[in-house]
Design a protein around this nucleic acid. Sequence first.
DNA 1: GCGACCT
DNA 2: AGGTCGCAACGCTTC
DNA 3: GAAGCG
Length: 417
Amino acid sequence: MGLSLYRKKRVFNKTPEPRSGKSGNGPLIFVVQKHKDKFASEADITLKDRSVISRKTIEKMTAKEKDAAKAGARKTLPEKSTRIPAADSKRKTLLHPTEKAQTKKINGKELYFTNLNKTFWKEEKITKRDLLNYYYQVAPYILPFIKDRPQSLYRFPDGYKGKSFYQKDVTGKVPDWATTYLYHSEGDKQDKHFLVATDEASLLFMVNFGCIDINPWSSTIKKPDRPDWCLLDLDPGAKTTFNKVIDAANAIHNLLNDIDVPSFPKTSGSTGMHIYIPLGKKYTYEQSKEFARVVVTMVQRQTSRFTTIERPLHERQGKLYLDFLQNRPQATLAAPYSVRPKPGATVSMPLHWEEVKHGLKMKDFTLKNVPSLLEERGEIFKPISGKGIDMMAALKRLQQADEADTSQSHREKTTVA
DNA sequence: GCGACCT
DNA sequence: AGGTCGCAACGCTTC
DNA sequence: GAAGCG
């Protein structure tokens, strides 16, 4: 329960017209209503979006990006990054370069690695051994974001183009030393168990099991109802360029900056981007989802030319889908530093916001270059599992920003008129 | 990838 | 001994 | 009530 925000009435256009820079899309829509628990002291919040919220910053941003695109180069800047000694170049490869199977002791557990010579990416000549070596090298970086979290296994026993399947229930399929998490599905009385990642051994076990990407819950088994972070998933349609994804990401960043909410971007490794907002295990999935709904709704209205929050594919018209529904129990997204089952063995790569600009390419980050990149750049995603935002304060600021922009748009209109 | 269950 | 099979499932939305 | 979506 908790913060419940619902659509009162859908008024805005399903296929919004290209904004000619004049008016918004009409009155809103959302009412954030208090419920008796967590936010009992808060008054109802009504956003009357005229959808002019940060248009200027968007336009500014777009101009800046044009310059940047002209200038070419993408600069990186390690600000506050953490070098993780264990992942420095001293951390060598895990596996023998030619043996097709091999036993290794990891975290005191015997792991039998199989089919090491099997090709997982044909074009790039990447083998299962390469994949295991990759995760061994980045284990110190990825583990904080998967540790103690139940995993959805997405298995590709024959490489990224081969037959694949999802697996949640691992009852009887994993070694005795593995940690699992009891669950029941539907009206099923049968005991089922998620695999829980706990350490390097469990990570490498998953990879040997055919998992190319790692898909953890947003919460840990210690507090399964309280996600560490809120997720915004930018999922481009077929005819959306990656530069548009970048525009939308920056629009989200600008809005969140305006309300003092920290956010952390990464490439998805597939076609889109993911943005993380730290919640510090303070809120429910429901609250996280509704917060995300407000944010993407406001951003969608600023960027209605090329984004949508409509779920049915045919409603999207090839636009960039701003997905906030991943903020629910048991939903997963590829973890930071996860390889993806995609051409080029792309990696879901955490970025500095300054890097999120035109010219950035998904294939800038792959299994081949990420380990050495990490040595240079260090860890930058730590804050996503740190101190969380004050969601109520953020919503208030969101409303204030909304109202300020609304009245500003009125002023502009009357001045012009 | 691998165990369960057929032939 | 070899072949085939199964291996997720939930909230939301529209039809 | 079923079927699509992620």
